[in-house]
């Protein structure tokens, strides 16, 4: 199997979504394809928050969108409660989608500017109804209250709200169908820092209140750590490292994870500043490097990194996995 391997998959009855060997490619003309996601395997347990972190172009949004089939999947499977989402089509797919909802990065452009927010929030209900096939305005008011928008503003349109409020409305819309899984694609990147904390706390509250499982995508390592139970670090369509959030940041093993942690403006204390010295640019996902995809920029790279793709391996018996031939050794037992 191309490199990443299935080691991080857990044998646990609480696992809600299992993604196995997911591959996504996009044709870009003249027979060329962008290898957006190339064989990634992970799972998400019920009630867990899985963070996906990486730089632009690493495939983190593509992974998330594949789960709700917003883009086509080349191969691999996405198991959700006994259904393989990668294979579902037509009515079967439509029926399962209310369980999987998404909130987007730009809160303002993801709301229809010409509609009242009451209608924006209730659209899913108007299509699906609740369990009894009906719904009432009370439900909308309850949702608006839950996300901290005064229901008396239900007849206003998105432009009358600030970015933070629009994101709250987007969250209310996603909650309307009582989803099991909520996918958050950079939900706070467009917000000011003072508002960012409000939205992050709100997501945490909604997760508790509605029993959600979250997939949280962000390029901000501090934000991802704050919200996640488990984190995947992605690079050029591959997973580099997967593990428990605290453990991963405490003992980062993959050189790329360390590079990220050393590059943030206030570097993590667990890495060396020189870990951030990575050269060059992200290679093209049309012709990704053979072997380890990070080999063009990695200062630890040797022959084997150009020949063989590293396979995911576990750190002791920890919930911590990495795919690297030359993992950075960290003192054990600290």
């Amino acid at each position: 199997m191309a490199g990443t391997g299935r080691a991080p998959l857990r044998d646990d009855p609480n696992v809600l979504v299992t993604v196995t060997d997911l591959e996504v490619e996009f044709p870009v003309g003249k027979g060329a394809v962008v290898h957006a996601v190339s064989g990634i395997s992970f799972d998400v347990a019920e009630g867990e928050t899985l963070g996906i972190v990486g730089e632009s172009g690493c495939g983190k949004s593509t992974v998330a969108k594949s789960i709700i089939r917003l883009n086509s999947i080349k191969s691999g499977s996405v198991d959700y409660q006994g259904h393989d989402l990668a294979q579902l089509e037509g009515e079967a797919l439509r029926k399962i989608r209310p369980d999987l909802q998404m909130i987007f990065q730009d809160p303002i452009s993801s709301l229809n500017p010409r509609r009242k927010i009451r209608d924006v929030i209730s659209e899913g209900l108007a299509v699906w109804g609740d369990e009894q096939g009906s719904w009432s305005q009370d439900r909308i008011e309850e949702l608006m209250l839950a996300v901290g928008i005064d229901p008396k503003f239900g007849d206003r349109r998105p432009h009358q709200f600030s970015g933070g409020q629009c994101q709250r409305i987007g969250i209310a819309r996603a909650l309307a169908l009582d989803p099991k899984v909520m996918i958050c694609d950079e939900p706070v990147s467009a917000l000011d820092v003072s508002v960012q904390a409000q939205v992050l706390n709100l997501l945490e509250d909604m997760k508790q209140r509605y029993g959600l499982t979250l997939l949280f995508i962000s390029h901000d390592l501090s934000v991802v750590k704050n919200v996640s139970d488990r984190i995947i670090v992605m690079y050029l369509g591959k997973a580099c490292e997967i593990g428990n959030a605290d453990e991963l940041y405490e003992n980062p093993r993959h050189p790329y994870t360390r590079a990220l942690l050393a590059s943030i403006p206030e570097p993590a204390p667990t890495v060396d500043p020189s870990d951030g010295d990575i050269e060059g640019e992200l290679p093209s996902p049309i012709n990704p490097p053979a072997g380890c995809r990070f080999n063009t920029r990695c200062r630890h790279a040797t022959d084997i990194c150009y020949r063989e793709e590293p396979v995911m391996q576990q750190v002791g018996d920890q919930d911590h996995y990495f795919a690297c031939h030359h993992p950075v050794e960290v003192a054990v037992g600290l």
Partner: peptide
């Protein structure tokens, strides 16, 4: 003071409750 408290910090354990600034500018 409030800005510094509201940002998530990398050395905090995950799920540390943030202290947002109420209201808006």
């Amino acid at each position: 003071d409030a800005l510094l408290r509201s940002i998530p910090r990398i050395e905090q354990p995950s799920h540390t409750r943030l202290e947002p600034i109420p209201g808006r500018p």
